[in-house]
Nucleic acid binder design. Structure first.
Lengths: 205, 205
DNA sequence: TTGGGGCGTTTTGCCATCGTAACGACAACA
DNA sequence: TGTTGTCGTTACGATGGCAAAACGCCCCAA
């Protein structure tokens, strides 16, 4: 557990190794996972505006994070405009990815959500891990998947087994292989946001 | 219509008057409204990273927007670190507000979503309009509300009438009055994110 | 003044999707 | 051997979607 809701926060993190997730717990005990973070991700920008954390952070596995003080941001922004711009972009990229999931939760079926979730995890992992071609180790329980996309673990299981039967994916001891990317993208109404970014206008240095 | 999905974008906007919404249309024709913007809001930051717009923008009423070129951001960030920091924060604030809605769509009932949606609109409108005490003019159709929180207009109607019967809200010609804020907040699991921001660490000037 | 037409709201009946609860199988671990 | 956690599976039922129609209201034209 890295951070709890309502903790006073003075630090942000960069994730070096492992996996971390951010989430909230609702009064009835149910959990909504807001985002799963992979190595290289910048964590906790939500707390830049609030002195009390609006979301909790826990490591999903052994993880290494580099904390740095929130007040150090100030000097960073003052002295390195390019870094400031990059942080701004990163935050916007996360915002867009969040709107995709919002649309998924609001307007698509359980199957579409599972498909797009798997594709998104797949594409994000591939950014930093070239060894991934079509199969990957999600390291999430079906309950965690459900809490990410607004389903129960039971229904996630239904969908996964169904997609396995239809030869869209296959599994062996926790490892998932995406067998038919084209159909998965169609089912999940998925668009890859992790390419085609436009960074030309950034300040240099 | 200010901007369409996949339009090439070179401009961002500040909303001066009126209301604007951002949304996406899914392949099956259904719509997910991503955010409703009010005067003073900064619009289109999603397109800072993408050369093609990931979302559409339309005015919900007559509106006045101030466009400025995306490339002007560069100079802004280089010369005014405080502005850069504020943009960064704004973006993070929007991100947090989006996570709240994500949790609502993923894990709460239709009634809770309507309640929290109304409260959020209420609190956001009050930031810039001091004349609002307990009633406000939403200027959204029930279908638009539904498309914001992942419900059909029919079901939004059911919930609104139910809440009216329970004396939680009342309506007269499009104007909504929140009669019992405390219970609405409880039903909607709502926390006001528009106060208690921590801006102390910002660069000056 | 009357009679459309359009838009948003209200209402209804039906039913699919998805949640709830519960239990068994299995593996990892103490 | 008990314990704990994850996955698999089922029966049942509620939430909320879908389709369709009527209603109220405003605007406009005849």
């Amino acid at each position: 557990m890295i951070q709890r809701v309502n903790d006073t926060v003075t630090e942000l993190f960069v994730l070096r190794e492992g996996r971390v997730m951010s989430f909230v717990i609702l009064p009835d005990g149910s959990r909504q996972i807001l985002r799963v973070y992979f190595p290289g991700d910048f964590i906790g920008s939500a707390s830049t505006i609030y002195s009390k954390a609006p979301e909790s952070l826990v490591a999903l596995s052994d993880a290494v994070v580099c904390p740095f003080d929130k007040h150090a941001l100030r000097r960073l922004l003052e002295e390195y405009p390019r870094v400031a711009a990059l942080l701004f972009l990163l935050s916007n990229a996360e915002r867009v990815s969040m709107t995709d999931r919002l649309a998924a939760l609001g307007r698509t079926s359980a199957k579409a959500r599972v498909a797009s979730f798997l594709l998104d995890m797949f594409d994000r992992l591939r950014i930093t891990d070239d060894s991934i071609t079509d199969s990957f180790d999600l390291k999430l329980t079906q309950e965690e998947i459900g809490d990410s996309i607004g389903l129960t673990s039971v229904h996630v299981n239904r969908m996964i087994r169904q997609m396995e039967q239809e030869a869209l994916i296959s599994r062996s001891n926790g490892r998932i292989t995406l067998l038919d990317l084209a159909r998965l993208e169609e089912i999940g109404h998925y668009t890859n946001r992790h390419k085609d970014m436009d960074l030309d206008w950034l300040p240099v240095g």
